[in-house]
Nucleic acid binder design. Structure first.
Lengths: 232, 232
DNA sequence: CGCTCTATTGATAAACCTCAAATACAGTGG
DNA sequence: CCACTGTATTTGAGGTTTATCAATAGAGCG
């Protein structure tokens, strides 16, 4: 059963285990500690000393940083099948971010010695992890650039476009974002305020690009949004 | 002689070669192609297909992204002893950034097969590289957060503080930044405009925190700057 | 129903960008 | 050495974007 669940996880990152042997695979799974998280519970806090590295099996995590003034910035969403917290474990540092479940979420965690020993024995795995981290670096760098050069409206459009890719579900009414997503979340993810985010989305709802309920957004005209991103 | 030059490079990233054997070391060095760059010459362009990964032996590189509107954003400076472009080589992608020397700069480049085979044989090296990339990711995430939440003046102060750490030289008059650094550079690195950057630095010069000439900045009162960063 | 969290909207002000123009500086060739 | 050219820097005026603050309405939950 556990096996089924694991194997059902589909993602590039889960591939990290594809090329290791059955023995290693079992070692990974056996050494892992499982956790079931209710919505909005904290998996680890920014600043905590890091012991575990996690694979999300179900649900989503939100990675945030809190500024000294108490403003929350969303660094990234972690979808099911993706890894997180490898940084802190490998570099022997505190977690640089807080991880919070945004819905019912199941994770497996491995401790530092396990992860390290597996990577030492299988350079393929280390290399695979490297390539995952590079992709994440690339993504943050792109968002950094956009934040430097684009206006809020553009960035909100990009944020939605990104979420479509990672959490978009096709429905009859358009593409529905399959995670609870408040205006505040969008603001924290885009680098703006709730108010500005709300104004922009209200506007888009008025012209029929999106439909929204509380913490729920459906993109009715994805192409309009994408064009808007490209046109600027 | 070449050996001397290599061994003179001091940095965490150069450590990446510390724990490989003499044979591997020579293999790395032999397979490497050397390049001497004049100031302001391009090592590789954003979008070019990536063949080499580089170690900077002398000088500095500036990594930038160009937006579609032609605005340049500085992603990072690469100091001597540091690696760059490993991302593109490993992930088999085009370079995501442009690398330009900002002064006379010497680099060694290795091609993909070399790098890959070394990492496959030495998982330690892959792991070491991982930890380097994690640190870079952490840095960009921090700057991302700052860009989201702080005002320009704060960010300029942080930028100078960062540059002090990586390129600061103690002199009688204060800490001198040992790289050519225009107002435009500071703007591109901080996410603002030349004009705003210039105004802020003029102000700081007026109150005696810094001294500046064309493309040269000396921080006269580093503690004032650091306090300013922390106080906000 | 009352409580809490989310969303909306308007008014106001601050921060910052844009554009224009002047000045300073370094390097080049005569 | 000087004039010339191209780049870097500064400064001002004006306008736009966006944050801030305040107030209200709606949604979900016990």
């Amino acid at each position: 059963m556990k096996k089924d669940k694991i194997e059902s996880v589909e993602s590039q990152e889960f591939d990290i285990f594809k090329n290791i042997t059955k023995e290693h695979y079992n070692m990974v799974i056996k050494s892992g500690s499982r956790e079931n998280l209710k919505p909005r519970s904290i998996l680890f806090h920014q600043g905590d000393s890091a012991k575990y590295c996690y694979l999300v099996e179900k649900g989503h995590l939100k990675l945030t940083k809190l500024t000294e003034q108490g403003r929350e910035v969303i660094i990234r969403y972690i979808n099911s099948g993706e890894l997180t917290a490898a940084m802190a474990v490998l570099n022997d540092k505190d977690y640089p971010v807080t991880a919070e479940s945004i819905e019912k979420t199941e994770v497996v965690g491995w401790d530092k010695p396990t992860i390290l020993s597996i990577m030492k024995k299988n350079s393929d795995i280390a290399i695979k992890l490297l390539s995952i981290v590079f992709e994440r670096l690339d993504e943050v760098q792109n968002r950094y650039m956009e934040l430097c050069t684009e206006k809020v409206e553009q960035r909100v459009a990009r944020t939605l476009a990104r979420l479509i890719k990672t959490s978009g579900l096709k429905t009859v009414h358009g593409i529905c974002l399959d995670i609870p997503l408040s205006r505040q979340n969008i603001a924290d993810y885009t680098g703006t305020t709730v108010f500005t985010a709300s104004r922009i989305l209200s506007e888009w709802e008025k012209i029929g690009w999106i439909k929204s309920e509380r913490e729920k957004i459906t993109i009715v005209k994805p192409h309009a949004l994408i064009n808007f991103v490209k046109d600027f």
